[in-house]
Design a protein around this nucleic acid. Structure first.
Lengths: 407, 407
DNA sequence: TAAGTTAATTAAACAATTTAAATAAAGAGT
DNA sequence: ACTCTTTATTTAAATTGTTTAATTAACTTA
């Protein structure tokens, strides 16, 4: 156990990061205003701000005009484009590398496809190669790169920076942090993809200014990320958020984990496709039978959505059932954690008049126990496909804005 | 939003509380050892320790004998009995007031029964009267009382110290903190009973040294308390932990909240009694029919347990079903939060070879998704009936040991 | 009894804050 | 244009609580 102690350095770091965050959230803002809000004294604020200006992290703007009287304040803002961050998303089929500024704007974007299952070393080589490519193309002096964030699916140990187990790539114990730090000499942080997404939502998405929210991520599987008390919750095992294996129907279908009625078995993209295929094969009437015409490789969730849009009864039922399952699990999670927002992420939540979202929302409304003062909103992520890689970026930015992040 | 800043006072408070906690956890311990562990310098430790000695919060013990050589260290320990804390538990049927020392030892214990539903003012008067009685009987100078903690069932706002809604007493907006502070001139903290229990488990019970654990509390209803990242989680609505209304069986019995299959409808004491009574009335064979002989007021959970012990099939089934429901809900909560411990509290978890616990444990084993390194234990609370009132006590003690708690 | 060790305290230096005062730069009134 | 008032920022000195370095205390061992 580490015992947290206070020192002059710590006190200064804390104050400086508080000021930096205040400028980010309320900027442009003057030194005097910062002093008023933080209750730090003007000389303290002045000194710390001047250091930040010297580091080029903030810029002094033209004095704002015409106050009631008195000297005009010098307005301060974050100098977003002075530094850069590298974000890497290692998914099942692609490696995506981006360069972004401190406000999360992506200035360079590169996607590399993974075609065959790589060995650990092949995978590391691919990642390094992609990053090298991006760094060469973008031409930034390394001293302006504040860090390199990696978002990776599967089980990750962020303290050690190791991808413990990645089911889709079938890799174990990939020491990403060590490998990439020695290769690029830039600070590296590694995190699970859904948890990285949570940080991205908090910085750039639907989780801005929200102290407690959940991300429900549906793809091949179903996962969730937990943001409470203004930070990501991991648990001591780094495995928190396994909503995919909570039970929504004790007598439901068998899941790949062996149990019956897991959410993932009722509501993943995989489950949607399996249930659809099964129905087609059992001869149920549906336009999807004609569309796929016996070739199940054509079947996709998009197609199921399209069928439902055109009034296909089977497709509608499958999507509604999916939404119901997700809704029950989400309601359970809401009742336990009482966050103020749920953010839905994944292809199946895209598009207008979405049957899955509608029945999910309906179940949540029905099953959560609230009193009048509780306002819990279900919304869709707006980060789209860039969510995870923005999470990798946010990982570093988050660190920069924490106490000690700019020393 | 409050912006957290560092100051000299804050730095000192932090170091002093770190030292105080270290003495509590590792004491008897010397100044030199504290300096080594905390990485604070000997003069810093010396100064802060001497202040604590002056305040009588810690005591210097006889120097421990014979080291390898060199001056013998002066051992420091918490002076538990120098100060006192008042704990109040306001339940459905009783008000319990205790006085305890800093190590959680109860030195005076008083229980007042609530016989009729009181009005808000009557309730406040009863509480005040009970506390007055205890303070008079115990004869402690008020300056040695560090605070007064109140654990109350229902919805509580701990920031304002108001009991927003107490279903069993049918009271709303009881301003306990304001009323008791002006009556006794002692700092008052108010908290929900289950969350107070969580703090008690962390200080004196099965949650000692555990950073993430859950308390599952079963009585008339079913509730849970969440301890994560080394603190109680409340959510911004102060209503986190409503496991009682998570769904364990979509087609289950109707709950008082209106939905079907809530845990509380399947597994509270009330539910056990209702299901038993129903079975008796429908003429099922059971010794309970003879024992109660038509008088359902005699029926109790103890009786159901006794029947099961004697081999009664109905009683066994009811208890096992109860355990199964609790197990499914607990497994769901575990999968979401991945705590390292679950603490069971309530009368139905007492006694050896407990059928409820056995089937709960079995369900948890079956349904939680773990990898080899995850060790999640289900244990029973050992605090017994004193759990909640110890929580009220722990509320204050917890504050005393936090930075700024001893200024 | 001297030498070596470890613990605790004292003295001086230092870092970063606060208070108090000074300076800078505007607008308003005359 | 000049002074007065007001507000923002900076400078100077005081203060707090830390750290480093040196000192004193108290014990064990040879």
């Amino acid at each position: 156990m580490v015992y947290k102690t206070g020192s002059f350095e710590g006190m200064k770091s804390l104050n400086q990061s508080t000021i930096l965050n205040l400028i980010r959230l309320k900027g442009p803002i003057s030194r005097a205003e910062i002093a008023k809000i933080t209750k730090l004294t003007p000389p303290t604020v002045g000194g710390l701000v001047n250091e930040l200006v010297e580091k080029n992290l903030i810029i002094e703007q033209e004095a704002s005009k015409s106050n009631v009287g008195g000297r005009r304040p010098i307005m301060l803002s974050i100098n977003s484009s002075a530094y850069f961050v590298v974000g890497v998303y290692a998914a099942a089929e692609v490696i995506r590398v981006v360069i972004a500024t401190l406000d999360g704007k992506i200035t360079f974007d590169y996607v590399q496809k993974i075609t065959t299952l790589p060995t650990k070393n092949e995978f590391l080589a691919m990642v390094k190669e992609s990053i090298h490519y991006v760094l060469t193309e973008h031409e930034v002096d390394k001293k302006y790169i504040l860090g390199l964030g990696v978002a990776m699916h599967g089980l990750v140990n962020p303290d050690k920076g190791v991808a413990i187990f990645s089911p889709h790539l079938q890799l174990r114990d990939v020491p990403l942090k060590d490998e990439l730090e020695s290769e690029f000499n830039i600070p590296v942080m590694v995190e699970n993809d859904v948890r990285a997404l949570v940080i991205a939502e908090n910085w750039f998405g639907q989780g801005q200014g929200v102290s407690d929210f959940l991300c429900l991520s549906v793809g091949r599987g179903v996962g969730s990320g937990i943001f409470i008390n203004n930070e990501v919750y991991r648990s001591s095992f780094n495995t928190a958020g396994e909503i995919g294996h909570t039970i929504v129907d004790v007598n439901g279908p068998v899941c790949r984990c062996g149990n019956r009625g897991c959410l993932e078995a009722c509501a993943s993209e995989t489950s949607i496709l399996e249930r659809t295929q099964e129905a087609i094969e059992s001869g149920r009437e549906t336009v999807l039978a004609d569309w796929t015409n016996g070739d199940k490789s054509i079947l996709s969730t998009e197609l199921v959505f399209k069928a439902a849009k055109e009034g296909d009864q089977l497709a509608s039922t499958i999507l509604e059932d999916t939404g119901k399952s997700l809704g029950i699990a989400t309601a359970n999670m809401i009742n336990i954690l009482k966050p103020s927002r749920i953010i839905l992420e994944g292809q199946i939540f895209e598009g207008e008049d979405n049957l899955v979202i509608d029945s999910l929302q309906q179940m949540v409304n029905q099953y959560i126990l609230t009193n009048s003062s509780e306002d819990i909103k279900v919304v869709c992520s707006k980060l789209g496909k860039k969510g995870m890689v923005l999470g990798a970026v946010a990982l570093i930015i988050n660190k920069v804005f924490m106490p000690g992040g700019v020393n």
